[in-house]
């Protein structure tokens, strides 16, 4: 395959970026998108050009590092995959592919396609945990019976890898899907009930302080989420927050 890549290049957080065009040939349809980027970078380095910076780690859809906005969609045109799981067979020979970083005021560009997603870490620190005594007297989790339906929903919410595709996709740059998944995975379990009120209030407060946009229920986040996190979680978080207002 021969492709034209139009990639966002930005020297650092303070510089002004621009789209730069690259031609790449001999791309195998079996390559992953990141492997194709590796080939491009090798070619650039041979020519003495600074390679394109991009985030990656596990390359198997677990870590949530790879954050590329490909042809107008977070993680590209495929569904339920991260960029590292996207294969070049999803494109045609001769295609022009636009590659941009995840864009939001809360995700500032560090370099090229690498963005700072520590806003998610700060939201998680605000309440995305349960306080458990780990001094040796910890109760076996299996000793607490949990309804199967709730366990399944909690597990589904917990599959969120925090990649930020929801924010990147949302026209409002809202982080509601991410935060709601983190709230839901605990709210559905008895272990999470103790701190439920403080958790939802603190996490939503942190989300607002970071400067994410408001949710308008377009549902785009759910469609582009590589883990298929459901919009139901947002409705659950809304309920949790309203309930929390009455308890506080």
């Amino acid at each position: 395959m021969q492709l034209t890549l139009k990639i966002w290049r930005q020297e650092n957080a303070d510089s002004k970026g621009k789209i730069v065009s690259y031609e790449i040939s001999d791309v195998s349809p079996d390559m992953s998108f990141l492997e194709m980027m590796d080939v491009l970078n090798e070619e650039l380095m041979i020519k003495g050009i600074d390679p394109v910076a991009f985030d990656h780690d596990c390359r198997e859809g677990i870590c949530g590092s790879c954050s590329m906005f490909i042809n107008g969609e977070a993680h590209g045109p495929d569904r339920y995959v991260t960029t590292c799981q996207l294969h070049m067979r999803k494109f045609k020979d001769g295609d022009t592919i636009y590659v941009e970083p995840f864009r939001a005021k809360t995700f500032p560009v560090i370099k090229d396609l690498v963005v700072d997603r520590t806003a998610f870490d700060r939201i998680q620190h605000a309440g995305g945990f349960i306080s458990v005594n780990t001094s040796g007297n910890t109760q076996d989790a299996n000793s607490i019976p949990i309804e199967k339906a709730n366990a399944d929903k909690a597990f589904d919410a917990a599959t969120c890898i925090g990649c930020g595709a929801c924010v990147a996709t949302c026209k409002n740059s809202s982080a509601m899907l991410f935060v709601s998944a983190k709230v839901s995975q605990f709210a559905l379990l008895p272990q999470g009930e103790v701190e439920a009120t403080d958790r939802v209030i603190n996490m939503v407060k942190q989300m607002d302080e970071e400067g994410f946009g408001n949710c308008t229920n377009t549902g785009a986040c759910q469609v582009e989420c590589p883990k298929g996190i459901s919009l139901d979680n947002i409705a659950r978080m809304n309920r949790e927050l309203v309930k929390a207002q009455f308890k506080k």
Partner: peptide
């Protein structure tokens, strides 16, 4: 909440 806009944004693909 998004100061720099995307060059290509395919909203119709998901909403």
């Amino acid at each position: 909440a998004r100061s720099v806009k995307y060059v290509v944004y395919k909203g119709s693909a998901n909403s």
